[in-house]
Amino acid sequence: MSLETETKASAGSGWTETAKIIVQALAIAMIVRVFFYQPFNIPSGSMKSTLLIGDYLFVSKLSYGYSRFSFPFSPNVFSGRIFAAEPKRGEVVVFRLPQDQSLDYIKRVVGLPGDKIQMKHGVLNINNVPVPKVYKDEFSNVECDPYYRHCRRVNYKRFVETLPDGGPTYTVLDLEPDGEFDNTDVYEVPPGHYFMMGDNRDNSSDSRATVGYVPFENLIGRAEIIFFSAAIDEPDGMRWYSPWTWPFDIRWTRFFNLVR
């Protein structure tokens, strides 16, 4: 075999090995995405200030087991859940919207099956017991319309809520005292369903309004960690057309923050 032939054979072998590595890496990534962790991005402000528009996070599918909504295209091959584990009160959950099963929503679980949930003057009540809500500070945010044609600075009051029975502590925003969703009827959560609310209490489409009670089957997974964040909702946020500005448009301090 000539030197030229040996060189061509070596190059062909190198490309084959590279192709194998790429295929194996893609296969592993697909397995992780389908069965373990799925990336999601935050497109709206309903979970501010816990989650911001432009946050990218991993959602654990193992947390609650698997339903048909856990898999791409939601194949209707079985009902219920496999390896089921119920969510805990206070966890931030991605779920499929009951009214439109093509849409993914992310909210906080505040009501478990059998709970009675009510808002009274902006205070969450669970089973007739007010959830402690303590003023923390002001949260200021520049908010723009989808096409950035108009922006304005919005100032919220930020409070700390602590759920009962050793539940988590987290922050919620209140824009308007005694707003539309600050006083509600009593919601009694039916068996096999959950009551979801956004942390941005005056600007969240959740179980108080159009979302309603969320079936256990519709849960996709628990939000775990933010792995990337870009200020896409701000006037000069994440200028994709100018790569030299990206280091200033990325929210570096949000990387690897756990979702609480």
Rank of each mutant, 00 (worst) to 15 (best):
G122T: 06
N218H: 15
P190L: 11
G179M: 12
S229E: 13
L173P: 00
K120T: 08
D236W: 10
N183Y: 03
V123D: 00
Y156R: 03
F159Q: 08
D165A: 08
S207Y: 01
Q118I: 04
P168V: 06
D199S: 07
N127K: 06
Y194F: 15
D199V: 02
H150T: 05
H193S: 12
N128T: 10
I117Q: 08
V129R: 15
Y147S: 14
M119I: 00
F139D: 11
V172E: 10
I117F: 07
N218Q: 10
T184Q: 10
R239A: 09
F195C: 03
H150G: 06
V142H: 06
R208C: 04
Y213W: 10
F227R: 06
Y213E: 08
N155T: 15
T162V: 11
E188A: 11
D137V: 10
G179C: 12
T162G: 06
E217P: 00
R152A: 06
N200Y: 03
P168W: 01
K136M: 03
F227Y: 15
E217L: 04
Y213M: 15
L163W: 13
C151K: 08
E176N: 03
P146M: 02
L175M: 05
P164H: 05
V142E: 14
D174F: 02
Y135P: 12
V214Y: 04
G192M: 10
N141H: 09
H121G: 09
Y135T: 10
R158H: 10
I117W: 02
F181K: 07
R239K: 14
N200M: 00
L163I: 12
F195H: 07
E143P: 08
W240C: 03
F216A: 14
D182S: 11
P190A: 12
Y147C: 05
G212I: 01
F227P: 09
N127T: 06
E176S: 05
D165R: 04
A231H: 09
N183D: 03
L124N: 04
I220E: 14
L173K: 04
T162L: 09
V123P: 00
F227I: 14
G212K: 03
L219K: 04
Y135E: 10
F227G: 04
V134K: 15
P132W: 05
D145P: 07
E180V: 04
G179V: 08
G212L: 02
M196Y: 09
K157F: 03
N203D: 11
E161Q: 01
S140Q: 13
E224R: 13
I126G: 01
G212D: 02
E224H: 00
N127S: 00
D137H: 14
L173W: 01
Y135L: 13
Y156K: 05
G221K: 02
T169V: 05
F181V: 05
F195E: 04
N125V: 11
D178R: 15
T162S: 13
H150R: 12
H121F: 03
D185Y: 04
N183G: 08
I225N: 05
